[in-house]
Design a protein around this nucleic acid. Sequence first.
DNA 1: ATGTGAG
DNA 2: ACTCACATA
Length: 333
Amino acid sequence: MGKRKASDDTNPNHDFCEFLSELAEYEKNVTRDIHRYSAYRKAVSVLASHPTRITSGDEARKLKGIGEKIAKKIDEFLQTGKLRKLEAIHSDSTNAAINELTRVTGIGPAKAHSLVKEGITSIEELRKHTDKLTHHQIVGLRHFEDFEKKIPRQEIEQIESVINKELKAMDHDLKITICGSYRRGKAESGDIDTLITHPNFTSDKVDKKHKNNMLKNIVTALEKCGLVTETLSLGESKFMGACKLDLEHPTRRLDIRLIPYDQYYCCILYFTGSDMFNKEMRTHALEKGFTLNEYALRPVGVTGVPGEPVEIHSEEDIFDYMDFPYKKPEERG
DNA sequence: ATGTGAG
DNA sequence: ACTCACATA
């Protein structure tokens, strides 16, 4: 996924959430005021889960997380259909510059701020000052246009078959799964999130060196065959970079994670998403007396202390343990 | 060590 | 929310 955010659209206070989210982003990215940012976020979350339409600031004030200031904004929005503060933000060039610069992967609010302070206010201008950037940011800038393009499903299928072919030749026992929206059956995706494991790599057998080389070797193999073209970062468990199918195709964001065998299915579940589905799944786990994270499903005792991870041999196992009706990846919206 | 950023 | 990788100090 790119750096754009999506928002839900089915709740009765959607329009309030929309402008409050925009104010939150503004406080995070431009003023760098983390407290105001959190305040807006809290207000959005309470409004988003409020079942009925709010019809006045006073009514909103009764909700936890909404005080005088936000209540006034809701009144203004109700009466005039807009917000003066937001109008001002929209016409502010510093804000526009920061929003533009943070679209480059590797550039967050802090870096964008310092660039704007030095007078660099656009992608075009930034291209003349690559000396101010890290490797990650340079690669992000070089492929700026490509990285914002969606990836059609059939292109990921082709990339998947190249990865499978190359890595199975290396070691036939490697298990490879592309997760994210691709696994959920979407027609297009923002990036390619690949999970890899191997039966004799488990979390109790800590072959740090073996593990370290394993991911490096995988990346090297994919570079040799011409698929992987850029590295943003490469550690012992996570590669972030880019790949390109051939000259006719854009450069695509590719992540590869190396996962211990015993954690593979929790990871697949987690990285398949969606985010909303994950939240749903976790709260259900808690209700059933489990704690679920990207590594393991563990029973939580009466003391509140999580026990030993439950043995998992498939994604279905996870659903079964917490009697949650199994949902196919395509149904996890 | 700490801060930044990605996901 | 939490973890990983990186850059800088």
